[in-house]
Design a protein around this nucleic acid. Structure first.
Lengths: 247, 247
DNA sequence: CCCGGCGTTTGATCCACGTCAACCCGCTTG
DNA sequence: CAAGCGGGTTGACGTGGATCAAACGCCGGG
């Protein structure tokens, strides 16, 4: 829990539930909405929900009716199959959307769990569909968001299908770094919100392998690692490693 | 090339480009459109494109303007990264959509390649957005299709992240089987349109591993395999194998 | 009918990662 | 302050699938 995070969530305490004065606007919404449209969007986002670390935002099997925008905090989504195996399918941070998987069958297909105290905006999906019939740019923006999710998943498939352990971890860290950067945080230094086990699950590796890869990165001077505190020392090195042909 | 396929594509030669009398309607379109809406949809699907085996429907990097519905034939999509590695991200058959990845950035992010002589309907995306602003059910149907793609990708991530070789192949075959069945073909006997190498790429395995798994399945009496002709002899056995706890 | 090529099969060996196990560290609790 | 505990690290060893290599079978062409 860095100081920065603390002040950020403190700031959120006082803002009202209104997209029009939300400082995540540029992440969530299409640019260039006029005042009238913005007012409509404000009405769309009806409720906010506050979750404590470990709380479920929704569970696989539950009925779907809203998607959620992360206002503050950090989430993971995971799916599990009958025989007990499970897999983390993604980590979501401020400004990212959760619940798109539920649209297809009106039932959530994964669990969404807060990895730290968090806050989300619930967006009733039928309202969103209604409003996006009125506002072209909102409609298009939403389609882009869904499409981006598909592209992201392809990236993960690529990672799982063709990369070796160290490449996967490098790709993961660079991705996180970039997302923190996009939110105004340091791209070089950040706290992991998830355990080694959760990283491993996401990357298709065992926690021991993740741990070893961290150690090796540190030995090679690419990273400094203290528990979940990461400092990237050599971004170029990580990138090179990530796209390195297997010998 | 089974007889069935030949007659099917022959039948397509004579139908006009009109969704209203397309026998894929129930796959592509929401049910319950009235005559007026159907006419509008007919106008939406402006052009058809015929491809020969090996032809690219689109390439990564090309500008995006349409999504495509497979009318007949069989496709694969693949992504490749700078260092030469690539991965098949999916196989698409009759009634399935291609190109959703291009919406996010207006640029295609993968290649789509015909694995046999095929035919597609091009659906200009801006037209689709326009029409789905008018027809609620079309809008919702489209959202469901995108969401289903996300769910499907999660399934593949699960497969790549947690399953071993034989489980992956079993899951793959059962999935194909079901999709053939849904299209009125035999779920037990079908021709693979893709090489062992392409299967391997999709499943995150080498072709030798795929081949060995096929052989083992045959030894165990689960399958009969002759080149690309597959006959499933024991569906239950495959299912059991697929969800088998690792020892 | 023979030839050449490509996709596939099969065998032998190797190695990256999984597994199992011990231990450590920082934190909480009595 | 000791005990307990969950998460993380590290080491020794096992193994599933990759790699390397050879041979096969189908198929089209001369």
């Amino acid at each position: 829990m860095s100081t920065k995070d603390a002040t950020t969530s403190l700031a959120f305490e006082v803002v009202k539930t209104a997209c029009s004065n939300c400082n995540l606007r540029e992440l969530c919404l299409p640019i260039g909405l006029d005042a009238d449209d913005l007012r409509k969007v404000d009405e769309l986002v009806s409720t906010r929900r506050r979750l404590k670390r470990g709380d479920y935002l929704y569970r696989a099997g539950q009925g779907f009716e809203s998607i959620y925008a992360v206002r503050s905090g950090f989430f993971k989504t995971d799916v599990l199959i009958e025989d007990g195996r499970d897999q983390v399918t993604g980590f979501q941070m401020t400004g990212e959307l959760l619940g798109l998987d539920g649209i297809s069958s009106e039932i959530h297909t994964c669990n969404a769990i807060a990895l730290e105290d968090s806050e989300v905006c619930a967006i009733p999906f039928s309202h969103l569909e209604g409003l996006s019939r009125q506002i072209h740019t909102l409609q298009h923006h939403f389609h882009q968001v869904m499409s981006r999710e598909i592209v992201r998943d392809h990236g993960v498939m690529m990672l799982l299908g063709t990369m070796r352990a160290e490449e996967r971890l490098a790709a993961f860290l660079l991705n996180l770094s970039q997302r923190f950067k996009a939110r105004g945080y340091s791209p070089a230094e950040f706290n992991l919100r998830m355990s080694r086990d959760e990283i491993g699950s996401y990357l298709g590796l065992k926690l021991e392998t993740v741990s070893r890869a961290f150690s090796r990165f540190q030995d090679e001077g690419l990273l400094s690692v203290h528990q979940r505190k990461i400092r990237i020392l050599n971004t170029a090195g990580l990138k090179k490693l990530m796209s390195h042909q297997r010998a």
